[in-house]
Amino acid sequence: MGIDFQPDRPIYQQLIDRLAGEIIREKRKPGDKLPSVREYAVETGVNANTIQRVYREMEQMEIVQSKRGQGTFVTENRDRLHELREQMKQTYIEYFVKDMSDLGFTISEMTEGLAEHEAKKGEKE
């Protein structure tokens, strides 16, 4: 069914992360028009009220801009997009560190683990 949402976070937040991710990897480029609320609701199988909230919050975050009568567009402010990329990095690091800490790993085990992971990946390639 459409998207598999994680059970423990509001759907609107997961959709913000999803769109922000698409913007960071330039699947949606600066100045691109986002789908209309209705279109994106149908595409994701999510309530239109939720999509409205997604767009509203992304506008407050200054990642997108709504233009009256035209729709919602990815911001062309490159500094903001660069900042967003850093924010996303921090967010995903926090998720990772939280999950790993919950499992009992220390920060040094995590960094060692990351280095090993990278090294193994290098060998394979």
Partner: peptide, 13 residues
């Protein structure tokens, strides 16, 4: 639904 996910960290089911 948002509150359930936020406060209880659970989906509706």
């Amino acid at each position: 639904v948002d509150d359930i996910r936020m406060k209880e960290q659970l989906d509706v089911e």
